[in-house]
C-alpha cells in the first residue's frame, strides 16, 4: 500500500479518475461510449481526440525535458506546419486530391524536422540555453507562419486532409490513432533501445555523460528534432480539424499545456528520469479539465482560474514535501522527509 502511494503515477491517475467521476456526476451519460454509423462517439472519445495534439507535443516535450532542456517553440512550429500544408493545398492546381494533401503533409513534416534541427543546433552545437534558443523560434515562428499565409486565414477543402484531424478509421478517430502510434513508437524507441537511458544520463549529468563516451551532442540534437516532428504533426491535426490555417491562434499556448502535462506526469523540469505514461496521464488530465469546465458550466471568465486551481492541487498531491507537511500536522511524529525539490 505504501509502495503504491509512493509510486509517481499514483496521484496523477487518481486525479484523472476523480475528474472523470466528477463529470459523470453532472452528466449521467459522460462515461458512456456509443457506436454511431460505425464510429465510436462519446465524451471520452472527444477528450482523446481533442487532446491528441497536446499528447503528441507533450510526448516530444518529455524527451526534451528529460535531457535537461525545454522547447518553447512547439506552438509556433505547429502553426508553421499547418500554414505550410494549407498554403500548399490552397495554391495547388488540384486542391481536393489526396495526392495534394499527401504532398502538403510531407512538406510540413519536413519543415517541422528542419525547425527541430535548428533548435537542436542552437542548443547542442552553439550551446545556447534551451529556454532562450527555443524562445527565438517561439517568437519568430509565428511571424514565419504569417509570412507563409500572407497574414490571412487560409481555408482549404480537401477530404483527405480533413481526415487527419476529423476522420475515422476502424471506428476510431484518426487523430487518436496517430497519437497512439507516435506514443508506441516513442516508447519502443526509447526503452527497447538504450536511447531512453542515454537521454536520462545526459539530463542528469552532462559532463559525466561526455566523459563516459556518450555522444551527448547527438542525443540532445535528436530530442529537439523529435519534438519538432511531434509539433508539426500536431499542427497538421489542428489545422485539419478546422480545415484552415490560422497563423496567429493555431497551437497558441500549447507549449504551456505540454510542459504542464510533463510535470504533472512526474518528470522533473531539472531533467533526468522521465515517464511517457505519466505524460500521457498529464495530458489527459489537462484535456479532461477543459471538458469539465464545459460540463460544470463554469462561467467562461472563471475558466482559466478553475484550471489553475485543479493543476495546483495535482502538483501539491505529487510533492512529497507538501504531503509530509500535511501529514505532520495530523501526526507529530516526523516521517523521513525526502530531500527532493518538488515542482
Amino acid at each position: 500500500m505504501s509502495a503504491l502511494l509512493r509510486h509517481r503515477l499514483t496521484w496523477p491517475v487518481l486525479a484523472l479518475v476523480l475528474l472523470l467521476l466528477l463529470n459523470q456526476l453532472f452528466r449521467a451519460d459522460f462515461l458512456s461510449v456509443r457506436i454511431q454509423d460505425g464510429h465510436l462517439y462519446g465524451s471520452l472519445i472527444d477528450i482523446l481526440r481533442n487532446g491528441a495534439p497536446t499528447i503528441l507535443i507533450a510526448l516530444g516535450m518529455t524527451l526534451v525535458i528529460a535531457s535537461r532542456g525545454i522547447d518553447l517553440s512547439v506552438g509556433a512550429v505547429a502553426a508553421i506546419a499547418g500554414a505550410i500544408s494549407c498554403m500548399y493545398i490552397y495554391s495547388s492546381p488540384d486542391p481536393s486530391s489526396w495526392q495534394t494533401a499527401a504532398m502538403g503533409v510531407t512538406i510540413a513534416v519536413v519543415a517541422g524536422l528542419a525547425l527541430g534541427l535548428w533548435n537542436g543546433f542552437l542548443v547542442s552545437v552553439i550551446g545556447i540555453q534551451p529556454i532562450i534558443a527555443t524562445l527565438v523560434l517561439m517568437t519568430a515562428g509565428r511571424g514565419l507562419a504569417q509570412l507563409v499565409t500572407d497574414g490571412q486565414i487560409i481555408s482549404v477543402s480537401n477530404d483527405s486532409y480533413q481526415a487527419i484531424g476529423a476522420g475515422f478509421f476502424l471506428g476510431l478517430p484518426i487523430a487518436i490513432l496517430i497519437a497512439a502510434g507516435a506514443f508506441g513508437v516513442a516508447g519502443l524507441l526509447t526503452r527497447r533501445t538504450a536511447l531512453g537511458t542515454l537521454i536520462e544520463a545526459v539530463g542528469i549529468n552532462p559532463v559525466a555523460s561526455r566523459l563516459a563516451g556518450i555522444d551527448a551532442r547527438t542525443i540532445t540534437w535528436t530530442v529537439y528534432v523529435f519534438s519538432g516532428l511531434c509539433a508539426a504533426v500536431a499542427g497538421l491535426m489542428i489545422s485539419s480539424n478546422v480545415t484552415a490555417a490560422d497563423a496567429n491562434n493555431a497551437g497558441l499556448y500549447i507549449e504551456m499545456d505540454a510542459i504542464l502535462a510533463v510535470v504533472i506526469g512526474g518528470t522533473s523540469l531539472a531533467g533526468g528520469r522521465y515517464s511517457l505514461v505519466g505524460t500521457l496521464v498529464g495530458a489527459l488530465i489537462i484535456q479532461t479539465l477543459t471538458t469539465t469546465v464545459y460540463t460544470l458550466g463554469v462561467p467562461p471568465e472563471a475558466t482559466l482560474v478553475f484550471k489553475a486551481l485543479v493543476v495546483i492541487i495535482v502538483c501539491l498531491l505529487q510533492s512529497s514535501r507538501a504531503r509530509t507537511l500535511f501529514r505532520q500536522r495530523r501526526r507529530p511524529v516526523t516521517e523521513q522527509s525526502q530531500v527532493k525539490v518538488a515542482i
Binding site: T193, A194, T197, D215
Partner: peptide
C-alpha cells in the same frame, strides 16, 4: 554506461 555509449544508442546491451 560506458559500454552502452560505445555500442551506440541503437544497440542496447
Amino acid at each position: 554506461l560506458a559500454m552502452q555509449a560505445g555500442k551506440g544508442w541503437w544497440r542496447r546491451v
